[in-house]
Design a protein around this nucleic acid. Structure first.
Lengths: 230, 230
DNA sequence: GGGTTGTCGATTGTTGACGATCGACGATTG
DNA sequence: CAATCGTCGATCGTCAACAATCGACAACCC
């Protein structure tokens, strides 16, 4: 949390963040936090008034958000929070399988002891909330866990793409509000993944990561009451 | 080439394309065609005057272009065509390996005879220009070939991501204008890829596609005079 | 003369206003 | 009474003007 208490920090903040960027981040936060419902219409002037700015920066933020897949724009109608269909979620999972496999391999190849410590710490936290079957914080921690893994590859483009996909999947999950459980199994898989990283077996880690996504997709399918026997 | 000769087409065109979108596409074209140099500064008002519109739509187009990775924005300074570093190109190739492997597998799993025909046609064209060592048209055909393959997966998100990566790689290539040859080897690999698709061997196709990216990266490294012995 | 500081033109950031378009509501007609 | 058409309010698309910021050049001081 970057607090702007000192003038120095405030200066850097003002220099780096433009109005449209700030608006973009705030709207993104609102969408991901569920403050704006899926499919809901985003009123340009209402938002600009809410932020006490004009419509220009809001429109620019909309363009960024559209490109990153969070909203959809209809000409002369406005922008809406995107609704991710089942088919699309499926396609995203296909991508995640490939990307997570890559993440597993790359992290195994280049992870530092410090980074592995971070992973262990996150796993411990997740263990705690999983024991209490506390889905909401578990979900957040899970996101952080996978995000860190993506970061540890050192591949910034990968991180960007990965985050966008996760965001869109989040959009899909928000439709059915069930957080589909399987917390214990998930933690077991995480443990196996980190173990694979520590053992420096690149290919094995890749398979492990991919398997985790596959299992994760299965859990989701189950929660949404559809079987993928094919 | 979508000609707007009939009023019906023009209507659809006007309805779907907004000014910012048009500008975005045009600037994207200019960048990829090399009409604007790498690192070059994009003058907001100059562009708006050139298109006979105001600065608003241009600014919105900039936001989209930034999010898609073609330009970089510096606050109070303007936007510049992004310069893709060697490190970044490397990272993109890592991603391409994973994505192309996925593409190979998925296309093999679901390609229709018609689609395979399209691939054959493209390969034949490439053969012709390769025989003449005509790099420029070969390059364009190669892009189309891979783009079609991505499309044939039916995974729209994959297509979007793939195209962005290809665009950024193109940005990198534009730095050193050498189109790094190896045309014959490239066509051989393409033939092997399509053969794998036709034989319906999913895993083999995946490996073949990945290998093509690896070889392609090697050729680039060579052309840029750096060895990857590590 | 080297370095610093003030000033200026150019460009970006932001705004408020105007015209165009859309969806909804109510009037009209068969 | 139902279906269609016209009108109206709300919202989007676009624009032109204003304010803030930057880089460069020149004047100034030591």
């Amino acid at each position: 949390m970057p607090s702007a208490d000192t003038p120095l920090r405030a200066l850097k903040l003002v220099q780096s963040n433009s109005l449209p960027m700030l608006v973009q981040k705030e709207i993104e936060r609102m969408i991901l936090a569920g403050e704006i419902a899926i499919g809901e219409w985003l009123n340009e002037s209402a938002l600009s008034q809410r932020f006490s700015i004009s419509r220009g920066p809001v429109r620019e933020a909309f363009r960024s958000l559209e490109e990153s897949g969070l909203v959809r724009q209809e000409k002369n109608r406005g922008v809406f929070v995107r609704e991710v269909s089942v088919e699309e979620a499926d396609q995203i999972y296909d991508l995640r399988e490939a990307l997570d496999e890559l993440i597993g391999k790359q992290v195994t190849a280049c992870a530092t002891p410090d980074q592995i410590k971070v992973l262990h710490a996150l796993m411990e936290e997740m263990d705690n909330v999983a024991r209490a079957d506390d889905v909401s914080p578990y979900y957040a921690l899970n996101l952080r866990f996978h995000d860190r893994l993506a970061e540890f590859t050192g591949n910034r483009k990968l991180v960007t793409i990965y985050r966008r996909l996760i965001n869109e999947l989040h959009l899909f999950r928000l439709r059915g509000l069930s957080q589909f459980g399987g917390l214990r199994k998930s933690t077991d898989e995480h443990r196996a993944m980190v173990k694979a990283i520590e053992s420096k077996k690149i290919e094995a880690a890749g398979r492990m990561f991919k398997a985790h996504v596959v299992a994760s997709r299965r859990r989701m399918d189950k929660a949404f009451g559809r079987d993928k026997t094919s």
